[in-house]
Nucleic acid binder design. Structure first.
Lengths: 217, 217
DNA sequence: ATTACTATTAGGTCATTCCCCTATTTGAAG
DNA sequence: CTTCAAATAGGGGAATGACCTAATAGTAAT
């Protein structure tokens, strides 16, 4: 058998990480050469270990997997990255793919999926959890029906910024002050965020933000 | 070596479960005889497999680990249960212990901690993550300073019920209607909940509810 | 029994926020 | 150039929130 493939594993829960490592090494074809607890460490780990693939959790405290993905692709555009997501929503699947992710898996996936994804990714293919790819197709079809194929970026940077603050418990007034803007402006952004996300209440907004790594639980 | 110890593993993320299983079986002293994705399945699994220990995730969709713990202890009071929690807060540590949990671990713990916990638990000892036990001691000390040692139940049943509804995105009006109460009553409960939890904004309330398994992400 | 405390209910008042609509400016895409 | 999205912000009424007070019922302790 050829040399084992080198894997960098980044997830902010130690036990989860250890579990994934055990799983990978039981396959006898992968070797975890580095582990990280946050997206902000990943570049250093890659440089040190020159891995064949990176496995990144999306929801991490300091820097999310999606953010780390940008950094990685800027310096190592051909290094395959597998994203792991906690919850069954394809909200950021498009973003992930636009940013060059090679695979997008639910943490709830079967072990074989992880193996399939690794195999695919090492052949420069793209692997997406079946559950999610269904949703993606539905989304694309829905878009097509509505005349224009708008592959929207979900939220603008400003909106994302404000979403985070809202989800972190800040009030409109406080946000307005922090950003040096009018309360009315924040209210506008807030309405537009909810409009886009089809959300009507703050609680769901908080969930959305957590699920998508905009903020942390 | 003696017979391997039988473990039942319950966590709603398949990959996490698989990882923990790999980790346990690498220790060569444990055998995962059943896996479940939710607290509601655990009793059936125990009956079927007669395990030596149960490992339960706290935050699960249908029935949380804390709820499942009650069921388990009612039927199998001597069966050791290890609780796994996602986040570094001891909010429900007391509850867990009151309900008879044998160990309380952070998912962020080191692998050795899992092993230590298993060893302790099989000797009828109690194991608590060092990080959390520190917090617990602080809490107890704080209580002692404030004259009375109140092992408070955190929230009353009514409060928990309303917390869940709030965290699920319902408004005061809607909750009042659902429960057949005055809007003012709900507002009172809401204030008192926030008072007890030392929380000032809805967003943090939602986080708290999710962290403690009152509702799901 | 009596006391004391908790849980649950609810009103009043005033400040804040939300909702719905409209509007200006700037920058990028065509 | 023109068109559209993003970011900014105001008006006005409705809804909600914060803060205070208080009644009733139930339970625990003496």
């Amino acid at each position: 058998m050829a040399e084992k493939k080198k894997v960098v594993l980044v997830d902010d829960h130690h036990l989860v990480r250890a579990g994934l490592r055990a799983l990978l090494e039981d396959l006898n074809y992968y070797e975890v050469v580095a582990e990280g607890a946050d997206g902000s460490e990943v570049l250093a780990l890659i440089e040190k270990t020159n891995p064949d693939v990176v496995i990144l959790d999306i929801a991490m405290k300091i820097k999310s997997g999606l953010d780390a993905l940008i950094d990685i692709k800027a310096l190592y555009p051909t290094l395959p990255v597998i994203l792991l997501t906690m919850h069954n929503t394809s909200d950021y699947l498009q973003t992930a793919i636009e940013r060059g992710a090679s695979a997008y898996l639910l943490k709830d996936s079967a072990e074989v999926e992880l193996e399939l994804a690794l195999n695919a990714v090492l052949k420069n293919e793209i692997y997406i959890s079946p559950k999610l790819s269904e949703q993606l197709l539905e989304t694309l079809n829905a878009d097509r029906k509505s005349e224009k194929v708008i592959v929207s970026k979900v939220l603008t940077p400003r909106q994302t910024e404000i979403l985070k603050m809202l989800a972190d418990g800040k009030g409109t007034k406080e946000i307005a002050f922090d950003l040096g803007l009018s309360v009315k402006t924040i209210e506008s952004h807030r309405s537009q965020i909810m409009e886009r996300l089809q959300i009507r209440d703050l609680a769901s907004l908080v969930r959305f933000a957590i699920k998508n790594g905009v903020t942390t639980l």
